[in-house]
Computed example of a mutant assay.
Amino acid sequence: MRAKGETRAGLRLALLLLLSGIVLIGAVAAATAIGDYNIPVRTVFLTVTNQIGLTDADLPRIEESVVWNLRLSRSLVAALCGSGLAICGAILQALLRNPLAEPFVLGVSAGASTGAVCVIVLGIGAGAVSLSLGAFVGAFSAFALVALLSNGATSGPNHTILAGVAASQLFNALTAYIVTTSASAQQARSVMFWLLGSFGGVRWPQFYLLLIVLFVCLAICIIMARTLDAFTFGDEDAAALGIPVARIRLILFAVTALMTATIVSQVGAIGFVGLVVPHAARYIVGPLHMRLLPAAAVVGAVFMVIADIASRVLVDQQTIPIGVVTALVGVPFFAIILYRARPQT
């Protein structure tokens, strides 16, 4: 019976990856075609095949440039960000044994926001520090503070969650103070849009950076998939199986912090993806992380690309911050989780 169950779960995973891959290709094509100036999907595919040397179709230069240099990179970055945030959510929910855990529970997003605001508003670095680097430094500062407040990797999951809440409040307060006391009206608008997430400024360099970071981090997580399964039963049970709990927790927290910091430093703060997607993937393929992690990655990619499309078509001639779109989906899902987790009487 157990072998049959594992076989069915494996088949569901294979089917999910196949269908999600097809949907992802279609979603990326649609996201690349849709914009202020719509481009035929055929032109999108021919542009890609031209660039990789498979075809030599005669296409309008403007359309080919828009597809390759602007929209395709944006869509692929959106897919990578969705995958990364979903993987982080799945890992944190296992480590903290909390179904409501997500990447920003560690305060990484708030720290990245403060770092970016310091560069935008205060001009720290005098041009030597880029916006992405400032956000990256802020993100890891928040992670270090959480580690300090929770007394390192040996603390329990509740201590880590409380430390993350405290760090988030601190860095959010710092961000608000800097913006209200030092920012001009134009700077305040720029900061606000960045804090809500945007794919508007991403290009191929951001894609390559995210691809490398996410590939390495996902490989580490896949290697530790069976260890993550043990963490879901508690630290004592994991230690009884011979797992070095403190060291593994520190490594996995660092991996999630690295992924989240890289994503936030490139596209801003995007919430709820790490909360929603792992639960959807877990419902389809089950709780074992060897199946859950790749499933969450591909579902997160599809979710984020579709959310990016929605952010550009919901309001005519205007782009909604991507964080607003994900929150519109995430908040109802958050309420459903709370409702299902309520004590039964």
Rank of each mutant, 00 (worst) to 15 (best):
R2K: 13
E6D: 15
R8S: 12
R12F: 14
L19P: 02
V23W: 08
A29C: 15
A30S: 11
A33F: 09
D36Q: 13
I39Q: 02
P40M: 02
V44R: 13
T49Y: 00
T49N: 00
Q51S: 10
Q51V: 01
I52N: 00
L54E: 00
L54G: 00
T55E: 00
S65L: 10
V67C: 01
W68Y: 14
W68P: 02
L70A: 04
L70W: 12
S73Y: 03
R74W: 03
S75T: 00
I91K: 01
Q93F: 04
L95G: 08
L100M: 14
V105P: 10
L106P: 04
G107Y: 05
A110F: 08
T114F: 15
G115M: 08
A116E: 03
V119G: 10
G123I: 06
V129C: 11
S130T: 15
S132Q: 11
G138M: 11
A139T: 06
A142C: 06
F143E: 03
F143G: 03
L145Q: 04
L149N: 11
L149Y: 07
L149I: 15
S150F: 04
N151H: 11
G152A: 00
A153C: 02
T154M: 12
S155A: 14
G156W: 05
G156M: 03
P157L: 08
I161C: 10
A163R: 07
G164F: 09
V165A: 14
Q169G: 09
F171D: 01
N172R: 11
A173C: 06
Y177W: 13
I178D: 06
T180R: 11
Q187V: 13
A188W: 06
M192K: 06
W194H: 08
S198Q: 00
S198V: 01
R203M: 01
P205A: 00
Y208T: 07
L214T: 10
V216Y: 05
I223K: 14
T227H: 10
L228T: 06
T232E: 03
D237Q: 14
D237H: 14
L241A: 01
R249A: 02
L250T: 01
A254H: 03
A261G: 14
S265D: 08
A269H: 11
L275P: 13
V276G: 05
R282L: 04
R282S: 09
Y283G: 11
I284Y: 04
G286A: 13
H289L: 12
M290C: 06
P294S: 06
A295E: 05
A296R: 04
A297H: 03
A297C: 09
V298Y: 01
G300Y: 01
A301Q: 04
V305M: 07
S311C: 09
L314P: 05
V315R: 04
D316M: 10
P321W: 14
V325F: 07
V325R: 09
G330R: 05
G330C: 08
F333N: 09
R340D: 01
P343C: 05
